[in-house]
Amino acid sequence: MTSLPTPLPGAKKLGLVIDLDTCVGCHACAVNCKEWNASGHSAPLTDSNAYQADPFGVWFNRVHTYEAGEGQGSRTVHFPRSCLHCETPACVTVCPTGASYKRAEDGIVLVDPETCIGCQLCAWACAYGAREFDADDGVMKKCTLCIDRIYNENLPEPERVPACVSTCPASARHFGDFNDPASAVSRLVLERGGYDLMSEMGYQPTNKYLPPRKPAAPAAATPPAETGATSSLLRWLDRALSR
């Protein structure tokens, strides 16, 4: 059913918080996502010409890098982009078959590969580019929030998080329940001013982004050397003693 579900009482709202302050742009999340999903629920994530000219592949996670601001005040910000599991996702409501759906129990947006006809209308409806068509399977594929990890009782409990979260070396990605005000993700959003991407679309993304922190005030300029020493040894001594 592609009409949006009425949230069940006590239902979870699972999603990610992505910390743009700590993301180092290493692409490990994107690579681990590809690795996990190429062999799990969404497998195979088709790659064509992987080792030749014009390689082309389906990925659920893409890391952009932006520059913002000018001159001394400018920042380089690494920006992972994946499905935001929106609360009112148009990718679900436009689906003519019911293959694209939002789960009532935890809000995860999924595609049923058995009923998807591959019309690609959902990819057009998503403002964020979260969906990529797998031409080999003829069906649309997307981030599942690693549904085959987070509920997988064969995995030790600490590993029951999305692959991108488990692999992030900078702990820039956090997974949890936004409906629980005491959860780590809810607290992070509250404390750090977590925000929605393209809120003007009205899709109400579940995933939140944490803005880069303000840079520390620049260190005061070192006072000029007092001795007027000309020899390099004396200048070094002066610097060493001034510390």
């Binding site: 932006y66 913002a68 601001g69 000018e70 920042r75 910000v77 991407l197 809120s199 803005p211």
Partner: peptide, 14 residues
């Protein structure tokens, strides 16, 4: 608005 980084100044794809 897509990146939410507008408060830092002009946003450019690097």
């Amino acid at each position: 608005s897509a990146t939410g980084l507008g408060h830092l100044g002009t946003v450019r794809s690097f």
